[in-house]
Design a protein around this nucleic acid. Structure first.
Length: 616
DNA sequence: AGATAGTGTCATGCG
DNA sequence: ACCGCATGACACTAT
């Protein structure tokens, strides 16, 4: 049942329907020197029939004794028909020039330098921290990284950078911080911030821990260094470095501050320039940023972006035009196309519109419309003959020999559309020979030759065997009609065999064309998918850059705020607190606590471990 | 002359 | 069992 249905659709229907250009071309090509395995290209037209005859015999089609006289007649007819010039028309396939703008964020690195140095310097000044072992610092900072997508190796790189930065920063930081923290006592700002319960300095561990309860939510800010107020605990726990303290960095960088505000992955890019001048804490931030940048660049490079492209990334993305993805070309289209009866490649190809229509027709009629001679005259066929034109420039190459020529030869137009199997008995008849008008333009012989060349081997065979109906009918008629047709004629075994072969080959030919077309569609769709994915990737990359930017800005704001607040804090004696010994910590409830740095460091370490554990 | 692409055909498997 | 379709493989031709 299904078979019949299918055949009815594909078979009879398409006879009139669209025929793929490729099939037409194929026919045309075939018309040329028959390329049977046995017989070769250079066979003379005169010998064509003989060769075909032999082939038929080989194929079992023509085992009967062929009447030589008949062959002679056929040869004569063919001679008349031969002479068409061939022209290959190339439908230049529009190469899909997909402007792939590769995204690169060269900007991050560049833009940052200008902004960062100042911020960093300020921070460093504000928070000259006592030197802390690089390892510790790294550990503290790591949490930021841990959250990040950046591979572990990146983290290591970052840590390396950090250590270097620290080494450089060690020497730089103190003076600025002193200035900053020597602000006049009784600063109005101090009042605004609620310090830990009444006591200027909250050294209470329990309190500290309590504040840490929401560890992730607490902000630990670096504390300005206060020479005047040495804290025993801090001193014991944290050996002071000559001038600069990394502890500040560790607390700030590692701790909650960054973690709270920004996901570790989003670490802003840092300035290389800032490195030497910045205190360790900032160095940590910078390192983070650098790490991000590195990861970004890695991403870009990973994606095949060259540095230049990477640098253009942001700019490109600024115009979000590229963001629009062709969802239509998504794999679904493929599936759909495949799902459809006849490779409805419609959706896939760039020529979606054309292809869609074509596909439908194609599916119904089969890739190849074999027009009979009688149908040759039918304009419908000629029009419907188009199969998957858009995408098939390749096919087109072979399909039409020369449109111009066809146009010159109206009657040939149909022939052109009629491909291989398009041989109708009537066509063979003199009656179907090119109209006078056509003859005027060219010699009869040429026209005949052209027509003859249009014929496929099977057409020649059919003619030779005097098959009473067209190959088109043989191939495209539904089984029932086909059998009906056969029953109407008294056909010899040889003829029946040939007819069956013609039908089989014709069907298979169309199937092959469809199959190849599908293959092509699949490839095109995959290419489009790749392009879409690349676009997405680039977009995400750009978004990441934007995030990094905003993150950096926020960090800067927080840092400046911290410095301002911390710098205005005064102890009972009216002296500023040392950032190396004290730090500000934001509690979840919005209050700000001043706690000893040792505690802050401990908290930082704890929080640092958590993300790592999670990762593992 | 060799590489490549397009096409037709056959063999085979599946529904 | 037959038919039609899909597809890999092969051969051939043209570029």
């Amino acid at each position: 049942m299904t078979r019949l249905d299918r055949s009815s659709h594909s078979g009879g229907g398409h006879a009139k329907g669209s025929r793929p250009l490729n099939s037409l071309l194929a026919g045309h090509r075939v018309a040329q020197p028959p390329s049977a395995p046995g017989s070769r290209a250079s066979v003379q037209d005169i010998d064509l029939i003989d060769i075909l005859w032999r082939q038929d015999i080989d194929l079992g089609a023509g085992r009967e004794v062929f009447d030589y006289s008949h062959r002679q007649k056929e040869q004569d007819v063919e001679k008349e028909l031969r002479d068409g010039g061939e022209q290959d028309t190339w439908a230049g396939e529009g190469a899909e020039a997909l402007a792939r703008n590769l995204l690169v964020d060269g900007e991050t690195g560049e833009s940052f330098p200008a902004q960062f140095p100042a911020d960093i310097s300020s921070i460093t000044e504000a928070v000259p921290t006592e030197s802390e072992p690089p390892a510790l610092q790294n550990n503290l900072l790591s949490p930021l990284l841990t959250g990040t997508e950046s591979p572990f190796d990146l983290e290591q790189q970052w840590q390396d950078l950090m250590s270097i930065m620290e080494m450089q920063a060690m020497e730089v930081n103190t003076s600025a911080s002193e200035i900053l923290y020597n602000a006049p006592p009784g600063d109005p700002l101090s009042t605004n911030y609620s310090l830990a319960p009444n006591t200027p300095i909250n050294q209470n561990v329990s309190l500290h821990q309590a504040s840490l309860g929401g560890c992730s939510q607490d902000f630990l800010l670096f504390s300005p260094e206060v020479e005047s107020l040495p804290v025993a605990s801090s001193s014991t726990l944290l050996p002071l470095a000559p001038s600069n303290s990394t502890s500040l960095n560790s607390t700030f960088g590692s701790t909650n501050l960054t973690g709270l505000f920004f996901p570790p992955q989003l670490n802003g890019t840092a300035n290389d320039t800032a490195g030497p001048e910045l205190p360790d804490p900032l160095g940590g931030l910078l390192d983070e940023a650098m790490l991000d940048e590195i990861s970004l660049m890695d991403l870009a490079i990973e994606e095949g972006f060259n540095p230049v492209q990477a640098s253009q990334l942001e700019e490109e993305f600024d115009s979000d035009s590229g963001l629009s993805l062709d969802s239509s070309h998504s794999p679904s289209s493929l599936s759909s196309s495949e799902g459809s009866s006849s490779s409805s490649s419609s959706s896939s190809s760039s020529s979606s519109s054309a292809s869609s229509s074509a596909s439908s027709s194609f599916s119904e009629e089969g890739a190849v419309g074999y027009s009979s001679d009688s149908e040759t005259l039918d304009l419908e066929e000629a029009e419907g003959a188009v199969g998957y034109q858009p995408e098939y420039s390749k096919f087109c190459r072979m399909s039409y020999q020369d449109p111009a020529q066809l146009s010159c030869l109206p009657y040939l137009e149909h022939v052109g559309h009629n491909h291989t199997y398009n041989m109708a008995p009537s066509a063979l008849d003199s009656a179907d020979l090119p109209p006078p008008s056509a003859l005027k333009k060219g010699s009869k012989e040429k026209q005949a030759d052209f027509l003859d060349k249009q014929m496929s081997r099977d057409e020649h065979r059919a003619r030779a065997m005097k098959i009473p109906f067209t190959n088109d009918k043989i191939i495209n008629l539904p089984v029932e009609e086909f059998n009906e047709l056969l029953s109407k004629y008294q056909l010899s075994e040889a003829q029946l065999s040939l007819i069956r072969d013609i039908r089989r080959r014709g069907k298979n030919k169309m199937a092959a064309q469809n199959c190849r077309k599908r293959k092509l569609d699949t490839i095109l769709n995959l290419e489009r998918d790749v392009e879409d994915l690349q676009r997405d990737k680039a977009r995400l990359l750009r978004e990441k850059v934007e995030f990094l930017r905003s993150l950096r800005q926020m960090k800067q704001k927080v840092q400046s705020l911290y410095q301002e607040v911390f710098g205005r804090l005064r102890d009972e004696n009216g002296r500023p607190y040392s950032p190396s010994q004290y730090a500000l910590q934001y509690a979840g409830d919005g209050s700000v606590l001043l706690i000893p740095r040792t505690m802050a460091d401990q908290q930082a370490r704890r929080q640092e471990r958590k993300p790592k554990d999670r990762r593992k």
